[in-house]
């Protein structure tokens, strides 16, 4: 029964995320394609592309999640959650790629010019409010607590969380918007600070969750529930504040879009940009610049950590 509940909740959650992602962008962005200063949100073609994406993604969700549930029911076995997640993520990626292709075609049809002159305000940039690196220290206390107590496995896990999140935080303190130009992405600095604060908060909560589970293993279910609720609350707050500072504001100047650097609107590949992280085009969050070898090492590192946790938990 628990397996079925987990399956349904995960399926509903992932489907919901896939459905709302394209609606979180700025006014001039449609499936990873930026249309200069043009507001594409109210555009007829833009609307119909979004409708088409919704229908495609919903159909794929029903096909993948429903199909696997049916198979599990037929064989009297719990549903294959991991398989469903992989299959749905691939299906959602295919739907996004298709929508991006159609959006790119529309962009070409409109012949939106690319701004070749990019301006920045040096004074504003020099005085820009970035989160102090000292904030990264919030990840240390619970690592210390882990090592001070006889739960070494949790201490190492908390140290890993501290290193990964702390490293990401330090590398992304100056993260710029994914378009360039003076007032091309208003609110980008605030949005970045909100995102980084969320990242640090979730990491600290995760460290606390690990310690709590090691301290009272019998209460792990309750702790999971609290951790899940806190993360969900944080995510909700992140979404609301992010949308307030980005989605409502229109670009006020020339926009260098760099559309050609975004593959399927999802993968960023720019050898001339030394940023390791950039803000996502579709949805909310960060993504890697895959032109950097470091990004692949980071990706492999995360896969290795996840695989190790999966093996150890079995």
């Amino acid at each position: 029964m628990t397996a079925w509940i987990t399956y349904v909740v995960t399926a509903a959650g992932l489907t919901l995320v896939a459905l709302i992602r394209p609606f979180l962008g700025r006014q001039n962005e449609l499936f990873g394609v930026v249309f200069g200063t043009r507001n594409i949100r109210q555009d007829q073609v833009g609307r119909s592309l979004k409708q088409q994406y919704l229908i495609e993604t919903l159909s794929l969700a029903v096909l993948v999640w429903g199909g696997l549930a049916l198979m599990a029911w037929w064989h009297q076995q719990p549903p294959y959650l991991a398989l469903g997640m992989i299959a749905f993520l691939l299906a959602a990626l295919a739907a996004t790629a298709n929508a991006h292709r159609l959006s790119s075609q529309y962009h070409q049809q409109l012949a939106v010019p690319e701004a070749m002159r990019v301006s920045v305000d040096l004074t504003q940039l020099a005085n820009e409010q970035t989160l102090s690196p000292v904030w990264g220290m919030v990840l240390l206390p619970l690592v210390g607590v882990g090592f001070a107590l006889p739960w070494s496995a949790v201490a190492w896990a908390n140290l890993t969380v501290g290193l990964v999140v702390g490293g990401t935080f330090l590398l992304t303190r100056h993260l710029a918007a994914n378009v360039h130009g003076l007032a091309a992405a208003p609110g980008a600095a605030q949005a970045r600070n909100i995102l980084l604060s969320f990242l640090l908060a979730v990491a600290v909560v995760a460290q606390g969750f690990g310690l709590a589970c090691a301290w009272q293993p019998a209460q792990a279910g309750l702790f999971s529930l609290v951790f899940g609720l806190l993360t969900l609350l944080g995510l909700l707050l992140l979404l609301i504040t992010w949308l307030q500072v980005t989605r409502r504001q229109a670009p006020a100047g020339a926009v260098r879009t760099d559309n050609a650097r975004w593959y399927w609107g999802v993968f960023y590949y720019a050898p001339n940009d030394s940023s390791l992280f950039v803000t996502k085009r579709i949805g909310v969050g960060l993504t890697l610049n895959y032109a950097h070898p470091a990004s692949w090492f980071l990706l492999l590192g995360v896969v290795a950590v996840v695989a190790t946790i999966a093996v150890l938990s079995n």
């Binding site: 940039l125 970035t130 360039h180 260098r256 760099d258 940009d273 940023s275």
Partner: peptide, 12 residues
């Protein structure tokens, strides 16, 4: 601005 901040802002 710092080298990193200006580089990110210009996308170079």
């Amino acid at each position: 601005p710092s080298v990193r901040a200006l580089g990110s802002a210009l996308g170079v």
